[in-house]
Computed example of a mutant assay.
Amino acid sequence: MSRGNAVIVHEDAEVLAEAVAARLINRLADAQAHRGEASVVLTGGRIAAKVYGYVLTSRIKGIVDWSKVDFWWGDERFLPSGDAERNETQAREAFLDALPVDPERVHPMAAADVVGTPEEAAAVYNAELDAVARGAGVPPFDLVLLGIGEDGHVASLFPGNPALAASGDPAVGVHDSPKPPPERVSLTLPAINGAESVWIVASGSGKSQAVAEALSGPDLPAGRVRAQAQTRWLLDADAAAELKHLEF
């Protein structure tokens, strides 16, 4: 299967979020049909919260056995447990707490009140990933969800930040983030690209330039994302506004 980009544009943010939610449910159901379980890496942000809300209200959410889904995170802000700015908090409030998930299959990154540094949090996550993968380092990710920043970052891999070049262990501590808070934890680019599918979801005109640049080449972190089977860009019309001159 081609590892190129597929670009799908929806008319506005609400249609985008509802469509991504339906695609997500079907992707997890397909994975369970294939191997009896599924694994998804969650992201944060406004559009992600909308997606999770639509998952929760979807009439087809019952086609997934939520107790057999592993939930991971692509990155996390190094803040105390329950902080409203943590991606974990957002996802739990948006849909996880209302779904019949197995708590043992929900894998948040360690918070700042649990460990002392982003590196310690990354080490704990690496150990958990390896344990679930039974010593293989990283378990199979059926799907990684990503947003894209106006600077073209994905997860907490920012342009010019040393974390962008990290390899080896799948999770890394991040310092000096240009967006607050400065300390974070992130999956590395090789870990993200090891997934079967990666979907980059973007909404709003503020993302349009970064989307166009990332789809034009590898200069931005988002332009270096290449899943094993499917890399899909799911956009609303505003985020896709600069793509008219590109062909896919």
Rank of each mutant, 00 (worst) to 15 (best):
A241L: 10
A17R: 08
A33M: 12
N126T: 11
D238R: 12
Y54W: 11
D75P: 09
A214V: 09
M1H: 12
A111P: 01
A202Y: 09
A127Q: 14
G62M: 02
N126G: 15
D30K: 05
V201E: 00
R184T: 05
G173D: 05
D75T: 12
H34Q: 13
S67P: 06
P218G: 12
K244L: 14
E247S: 13
A214E: 03
A166Y: 02
P100S: 05
P108Q: 08
E14R: 08
A91E: 13
D238Q: 15
P108S: 09
A195E: 08
L235I: 06
V55F: 06
A112L: 00
V211G: 06
E11F: 00
H245C: 00
S156A: 14
A49P: 04
V144M: 06
P182Y: 07
L187Y: 08
R92L: 14
G173R: 02
V138M: 14
D83R: 03
P221V: 02
I200T: 12
T117Y: 07
H10N: 05
A122I: 06
P221Q: 00
G137A: 09
V174G: 11
V40P: 04
A131N: 13
D75C: 10
Y125C: 06
A91H: 08
H153W: 01
E93T: 11
P162Q: 09
M109Y: 04
L143S: 12
A110C: 05
G36D: 13
H34Y: 12
A202K: 03
F158V: 13
G152D: 00
V198Q: 02
N126S: 05
P178N: 01
P180I: 06
A171R: 00
A121F: 07
D30Q: 13
R86W: 04
L24R: 02
A155H: 07
A222P: 04
S186V: 08
R232P: 01
S197K: 06
E119G: 03
V15N: 05
L24Q: 07
I60L: 10
E85R: 12
I192Y: 11
F141W: 15
R46C: 00
L215A: 10
R226Q: 15
S156V: 06
W72D: 00
A123W: 00
R35E: 14
H10W: 12
T43C: 11
V225F: 07
A111Q: 07
K61G: 03
S67M: 07
S39P: 08
G149S: 03
E247A: 12
I25L: 12
Q90W: 00
F95P: 03
Y125E: 15
Y54N: 15
V15Y: 01
D219S: 11
L99W: 02
P103Q: 09
L143A: 11
R46Y: 03
A229S: 12
A237P: 01
A13H: 01
V172K: 01
L143Y: 11
G173W: 03
T43I: 07
P108F: 09
A237N: 02
V15G: 00
V124C: 09
V101W: 05
A38F: 08
P182H: 13
H153T: 04
A123F: 02
V106F: 14
A6Q: 15
